[in-house]
Amino acid sequence: MKYTSLGKTGLGVSNLSLGTMAFGRWIDEKASIEILDAALDAGINVIDTANFYGKGQDESFKYGTGESEEIIGRNLKGRRDKVVLATKVGLPMGQDINDFGLSRFHIMREVEGSLKRLQTDYIDLYQVHRFDNETPLEETLSALSDLVKQGKVRYIGCSNYAAWQMAKAGGISNLLGLESFVSSQSQYNLLSRELENEVVPFCLSESMGLLVYSPMARGMLSGKYKSRHELPEDSRAARGEQLIQNYFTDENFERVEQYKKLAEEHDVNLSQFSLSWILNQPAVTSAIVGASKLHHVTDAVQISDWAWTQELQKQVASI
Rank of each mutant, 00 (worst) to 15 (best):
L118K: 08
T87A: 10
G78A: 13
S145P: 02
G101A: 10
K62V: 12
F105S: 06
G113L: 13
N133T: 08
Q127V: 14
K62A: 15
E69T: 05
D121H: 09
F105L: 04
G101R: 09
I123S: 01
G101Q: 11
H129L: 12
Q119V: 07
E69R: 01
R117L: 04
V83T: 14
L115S: 06
L91Y: 08
S114L: 04
R79A: 12
G64E: 08
R74D: 08
S68T: 13
T120M: 09
G101E: 07
K82S: 12
S114Q: 06
R80D: 08
D124F: 05
R117C: 04
K82T: 10
N133L: 14
V89I: 14
S114N: 06
N133K: 13
Q127A: 08
Y126G: 02
G73C: 08
S114D: 04
R104H: 01
S68E: 12
Y63V: 11
K62I: 07
N98K: 14
A86N: 00
F131R: 07
G66E: 10
Q127E: 14
S142C: 05
L137F: 02
S68M: 11
R109Y: 04
A143N: 02
D124Y: 07
V128Q: 05
E134Y: 07
V83M: 11
E70W: 00
Q127M: 15
D146M: 07
A86E: 06
M108I: 00
E134S: 15
G113V: 08
L118E: 08
T120F: 03
K116G: 01
G113H: 11
G66L: 14
I123Q: 02
D96Y: 09
V84T: 12
L144Q: 02
A143H: 02
Q127T: 15
G73R: 05
E70T: 15
P136S: 11
T65M: 03
E69Q: 07
G78P: 12
Q127H: 13
S103F: 04
Q95G: 00
M108G: 00
V83Y: 01
P92E: 05
G66N: 09
R74P: 02
R80K: 14
V128N: 02
Y122C: 15
V84G: 01
V83S: 03
R79I: 14
M93A: 05
I107E: 01
S142K: 13
T135L: 09
D121G: 14
M108P: 00
R104M: 00
S142F: 02
V89G: 02
G101L: 11
Y63Q: 13
F131P: 13
G66M: 11
I71P: 00
D81W: 03
R80W: 09
